[in-house]
Design a protein around this nucleic acid. Structure first.
Lengths: 182, 182
DNA sequence: GTATAGTTTCAGAAATTACTGAAACTTCAG
DNA sequence: CTGAAGTTTCAGTAATTTCTGAAACTATAC
């Protein structure tokens, strides 16, 4: 048997949270199971561990692949496919983050850009235009920043996070140094 | 009539995105409508603009209130309640962010903390323990950092975002300064 | 080729989630 | 107190999403 009580509680929790994280219950459970289980698992093993149909596993794997969250392995002398989580815990977090940005923010940014192209024609639209503009700029800034953070090397990123609010002191320091150079 | 074509496209988009942002279609539309419309709207006006039932509006308003995203107004000589978005665009973003953290991350952190309390009893659990530990630490760090960013004053935050990846240079600079002091 | 071991697909069923509208409730003015 | 103007609730229904399982497909060994 694959699951002990504690492992099961984690896997079921992933299921309950699944929909909040952007996928559905079974996909959440599947991913939880893969993360918590050291050995890669075959589709049949997943189906048995979670009591779901073989077809459902297949669809779930496809979904996880679209998030770039699983990798596939083969064992010698065995035709089955074995699945395990793709990358480290850290990578998994950045991938979920990035994919969610694509799904949750990018479409909105593109709608806003389109809508902002033509000029407002009456009072209501002037206000609407203004609001959309503000949302657009905010999303752009945040998206851009998120991208840059992701491109930093993980060590610096960790330093930055550990620094926390202290970062504002560093910024102050920087602006003082710069103004001295004038 | 409340909506022009362009406003409608924005409102309907908010509806389609609603479920990805953490609420359902109608709640998304309602919030979009409130954001884009300068004057506060009554429940009946919302119901008519979106072609939904009065009861649905009431439930939607409750949902938006649980996210701290609407505020209620009264007009003199009028018993109706009028609704408008709570706070600036910036505040709305931080609220959605914060509420989502509460719903998406906090429950997991608490499950992990509980599970990590008792020691693993076999090989499978040793590995599971390790993984949960890693996820726990990552979520803690990120949550903590997000909290600190939110507590920074908006100007510094903007500077920080504009700085983007350039922040790693500032960090380098800081560590050089510190090591010179040794 | 054909038998075998596996994966994928997808129509229909099951489960979940959202919506309506009528009834219950609340508040206030007279 | 009564009635009018409003809000909320919730049982039942509608819409959407997810899941199953059988059939179709693919790849490999012999």
């Amino acid at each position: 048997m694959i699951m002990t009580a504690k492992i099961e509680s984690f896997v079921m929790h992933c299921g309950e949270m699944g929909s909040r994280w952007g996928f559905n219950r079974t996909v959440g459970q599947m991913y939880g199971l893969l993360i918590i289980h050291e050995q890669a698992l075959s589709a049949v093993e997943i189906a048995e561990a979670l009591n779901i149909s073989r077809g459902n596993v297949s669809m779930g794997i496809k979904e996880l692949q679209s998030w770039r969250l699983v990798s596939v392995h083969h064992k010698p002398k065995d035709r089955k496919e074995y699945y395990s989580p793709a990358g480290s815990i850290w990578e998994m977090a950045t991938r979920v983050f990035e994919e969610r940005r694509k799904r949750e923010v990018d479409p909105t940014l593109s709608l806003l850009r389109d809508n902002l192209l033509d000029e407002p024609t009456n009072d209501k639209e002037v206000y609407a235009h203004q609001q959309m503009h503000e949302i657009h700029d905010l999303l752009e800034t945040v998206t851009h920043w998120a991208g840059e953070l992701q491109s930093m090397n993980p060590d610096n990123l960790t330093t930055l996070m550990k620094l926390g609010a202290g970062v504002s002191k560093v910024i102050d320091m920087k602006s003082k140094l710069l103004s001295n150079n004038k």
